[in-house]
Structure formats: C-alpha cells, structure tokens
Amino acid sequence: MSGSLDWEAYCTLHRADDGGGLLDAVKSIRHGSLAELVRYIMLLPSERRTEYVIEKAGDHRLGYGEIAALARRDDFPFA
C-alpha cells in the first residue's frame, strides 16, 4: 500500500482462522479506524500478532505482514 491512506477508514478485526464467508460480519472481534486496529495489533505480544487480520471495505484482508508495514510508515498516526 503506497501513497496516501485513509487512516480513518472503517475496518473490522477478525481472527485469521475465522474462515470469512457469508457470516463474516458477525465474526468480527472489534471495529474501528484502520489506524486504531493497526495500533491494537502492534500492541499485542509479538507471538499473538499473526492470529488476527484487519478487514477493510471491499473485502481486503490485511495479514500481519501488511499490518506491520503500515505501522512502519512515516505517516502512521501514533496518537
């Protein structure tokens, strides 16, 4: 993900192994902005971070590699 991002975009947090599918919306664990959920994942103990994915509008699921890359961006809003 290069270029400008909408850090306030609505996203949902899911377990990586929840299977997605028809009832995907009811399987979400938490919701918030992209920045909030990236921050949440990065504050977890490192051994647990790969257990979750962030789902953005349009059905794109961000795995830990993408989440960590977002957290390293110069424009990531830390506060």
Rank of each mutant, 00 (worst) to 15 (best):
Ala68Arg: 15
Glu8Asn: 15
Leu37Trp: 06
Pro77Ile: 10
Asp24Trp: 03
Lys27Leu: 00
Glu47Phe: 07
Ala68Ile: 12
Thr50Gln: 12
Arg15Cys: 00
Thr50Arg: 14
Ile67Val: 15
Val26Asp: 05
Arg15Ser: 00
His14Arg: 05
Leu34His: 03
Ala35Val: 06
Lys27Thr: 01
Leu62Arg: 05
Ala68Asn: 14
Ile67Gly: 10
Asp18Gln: 02
Asp17Tyr: 05
Leu13Pro: 01
Asp74Ala: 15
Ala71Lys: 05
Ala69Met: 12
Gly63Gln: 12
Arg61Met: 11
Glu55Gly: 12
His31Asp: 12
Tyr52Pro: 01
Phe78Leu: 11
His14Tyr: 03
Asp6Val: 03
Thr50Cys: 09
Arg15Gly: 01
Phe78Ile: 10
Gly3Ser: 14
Ala16Glu: 04
Trp7Met: 08
Arg48Cys: 10
Glu51Gln: 10
Ser33Gln: 07
Gly32Ser: 07
Ala71Val: 06
Asp18Gly: 02
Gly65Trp: 10
Ile41Pro: 04
Leu62Gln: 05
Ile54Tyr: 03
Leu13Tyr: 00
Gly63Phe: 15
Ile41Trp: 03
Gly19Asp: 04
Ser28Gly: 03
Tyr64Ala: 07
Gly65Met: 08
Ile54Asn: 03
Val26Arg: 10
Leu13Val: 00
Arg15Asp: 00
Ala71Pro: 03
Ala35Met: 07
His14Ile: 02
Arg48Met: 08
Cys11Thr: 04
Ala9His: 11
Ala69Glu: 15
Arg73Phe: 15
Ala69Asp: 14
Gly21Ala: 06
Tyr64Asn: 11
Ser4Thr: 12
Glu51Met: 06
Phe76His: 09
Tyr10Met: 07
Arg30Phe: 02
Asp75Phe: 14
Leu43Met: 13
Tyr10Thr: 07
Arg73Lys: 11
Glu55Val: 14
Arg48Val: 06
Cys11Met: 01
Gly65Ser: 10
Glu36Ile: 05
Ile67Ser: 08
Ile67Glu: 09
Ser28Arg: 05
Val38Ile: 08
Lys56Trp: 11
Leu23Ser: 02
Glu55Leu: 13
Tyr64Ser: 08
Asp59Cys: 13
Tyr64Cys: 12
Ser2Cys: 06
Ile67Ala: 13
Cys11Lys: 01
His14Asp: 01
Glu66Gly: 08
Leu43Asn: 15
Arg73Ile: 11
Arg61Gln: 11
Ile67Pro: 08
Thr50Met: 07
Ile67Lys: 08
Arg30Pro: 00
Pro45Lys: 04
Asp24Gln: 04
Gly58Gln: 13
Val26Gly: 04
Ser2Val: 09
Glu51Phe: 06
His14Ser: 01
Met42Glu: 13
Asp74Tyr: 11
Ala71His: 08
Gly65Pro: 08
Ala16Lys: 03
Val38Gly: 04
Leu43Pro: 01
Leu43Ser: 14
His31Leu: 04
Tyr10Val: 06
Cys11Ser: 04
Phe76Val: 14
Arg15Phe: 00
Glu8Gln: 15
Gly20Trp: 00
Gly63Ala: 13
